[in-house]
Write a protein that binds this DNA or RNA. Structure first.
Lengths: 348, 348
DNA sequence: TATTGATGTGCAAACGTTTGCTCGTTCAGA
DNA sequence: TCTGAACGAGCAAACGTTTGCACATCAATA
């Protein structure tokens, strides 16, 4: 049997309430009593039972992170580990813990989340995906759980942190345009995700602005896997009018593109230029290294935590759900996957 | 205020105990009462308060996963996301949740773990690193917390799941020897980790068995980062007697090796062969793709969970800590990073 | 000396469950 | 008609905390 507050109290010759107050730093406890209690606590290695504590204070000191789909596919993309890094780092500073929610399908995930939310295991949640057909978010809003989403929500009234993906997509495309590329293709993941849509929109905007004919545009959308990327791109590369450059919405997919280009007997960046997104670790490690848009994943996670704490604060003072949004800036990192295109003017 | 069991009871015209029993599937509750209660529960979307529940049943339905060091560096290596995949998948099947423990240094991590263990937030823990100077494990053993380690513990009496890394290291080395390589270098991470030591020992064993002179051996040990790998290997490659092959203890490090080799103007596999470990996603994606030893990371995670549940079971029936170990087999996956060496006999 | 105001501590209720025990019905068998 | 299972449900204690309120002590003030 674990050591309880009563034992501490008994040994210290005080009541449990005094111990509790001493622990909480209540100024009404005298210095000597406090010291005596502290000594005994250290000696016995006492830690309060969090369940009992949460039960009365109505706060768990834990937040929930809801992974996309099954945690399965989620962890395949380096984005998620990275965002988790940011989240854990920030939580650490607040002394909060992290409860992970997954589920092989939406139903069991929902059950899992309901249990941790209604079961009062978490004080708030961070959602890691913005998907069109996600019912979870309705549930969470109805439950009035403090929550913030990473990525642009498809509903009104949800606090979130995101990049300006339209702008980022536009800038990435313009980078290629400036270097003399005209026939530029866009390769994204599923269009059910806001991030894919936004980056594509940015691409379109840039192409519009540059007055590129629709015939020179190609929008590919696959399943976020490199295999699919490989297949799609291989196809395109064998067309007589193949693009000279690709805007790829994800580093992992860019790996598929690299593979496809090389298999087609072409070289990067001489024959085909690539700029991709996320700037995860591996973008440095490919051959050639990828020019990629850094979206500061760590900051996305960090900021999400900050916002969530603000929300938790507000909700406990009953100001009711307020929604906020924070945009993390992006930055194109130049590496070796882009060369001058056929229309280069020589003055970039 | 959330809906409680009392409300359900009131609406159903029964006592809380009856509701509790109905939920637990207690056979003493009549079918009609059960149905009536269930209807109301569905209607109101009731979920029991887990804190209250855990408090009395003395089980949290949650297990803790202790990440190496700060979750920071941890998530950099694809190994951890992958093992987490295995763990979450297995936990899901048991209806268990996952609480993550990190800490920017050992002290705060210890605090974090103590809180979740003694705070009764978890029923058991999985440790993700086997490090020589880790005090945490003493604490956990003393607390008699059900735990299993992924990787070979440096202490007796700890349940664990691991690969036979000595054997794997030996086989990887033999694979190169069989193909006519003689001057083979080993590149591993920090020697504070059991995994590094084991794979190196395997390498040594194979070299011994093949009667390779010590002069033909090179053992490099860096910090598990690709930068370090890059540096170390660059050095070695400029020696007049450079190795013709590398056994690299981690795919990520192998990326560094690839970079170093290419920077040195050499090609893989013609000039330098590589076999690495872990077979994470990226080993397929490099150029050329890496021949890598698959250690079945998913199974390590999965099996750790199974063992932990067995331990929890035992410990609740007071059989006292028993220790078990499970070895996940390994399998060399042949890809494009190995060619025949200078001493190839032509009959492999 | 009586009153007051700090100061330090304790009592007991409350949080939302689970569960051992008790109790009232009902019904079959004697 | 009486006895005693068998069945269905409720009472109340327990889990380990926190916290509003009451209380005791003591020094200072009136």
């Amino acid at each position: 049997m674990a050591v309880t507050i009563k034992e501490i109290a008994e040994r210290a010759g005080v009541s449990p309430s005094t111990v509790s107050r001493a622990l909480a730093g209540n100024p009404r406890i005298s210095a000597e009593t406090r010291a005596r209690i502290q000594r005994i606590i250290d000696e016995l290695g006492y830690h309060p039972n969090m369940n009992a504590r949460s039960l009365v204070v109505k706060s768990s000191g834990t937040i929930g992170v809801v992974l996309p789909r099954s945690g399965d596919s989620a962890f395949l993309n380096p984005f998620f580990p990275e965002v988790l890094r940011g989240i854990t780092a920030a939580l650490e500073e607040h002394g909060y813990a992290l409860l992970l929610a997954t589920g092989r399908d939406d139903a069991v995930k929902h059950e899992h989340v309901a249990r941790m939310v209604q079961g009062k295991q978490v004080d708030g949640v961070i959602l890691l995906e913005s998907r069109a057909d996600d019912h979870l978010i309705f549930y969470l809003r109805e439950q009035r759980v403090p929550m913030v989403m990473i990525g642009r929500p498809l509903l009104e009234g949800i606090a979130y942190v995101d990049n300006d993906n339209v702008l980022a997509g536009k800038e990435a495309t313009e980078y290629l345009l400036e270097r003399g590329h005209r026939h530029i293709a866009f390769l994204g993941g599923s269009l059910a995700y806001a991030v894919t849509v936004d980056r594509r929109d940015g691409y379109m905007l840039a192409m519009d602005k540059a007055g590129i004919a629709p015939a020179m545009r190609t929008v590919l959308s696959t399943d976020f896997s490199e295999e699919d990327a490989y297949r799609e791109v291989t196809d395109v590369l064998h067309r007589p009018d193949r693009p000279t450059a690709f805007v790829v919405a994800d580093d992992l997919m860019a790996l598929g593109v690299i593979g496809a280009v090389q298999s087609a007997g072409l070289t990067i960046p001489e024959d085909v230029s690539i700029v991709s997104f996320n700037n995860v670790l591996l973008s440095r490690l490919t051959n050639p290294p990828l020019t990629s848009v850094d979206i500061h994943i760590l900051d996305l996670g960090r900021k999400a935590v900050e916002m969530l704490f603000a929300l938790i604060e507000k909700s406990s003072s009953r100001v009711d759900h307020y929604t906020d949004t924070y945009i993390v800036h992006t930055q194109l990192i130049e590496r070796g996957s882009v060369s001058l295109g056929p229309f280069a003017s020589g003055n970039v």
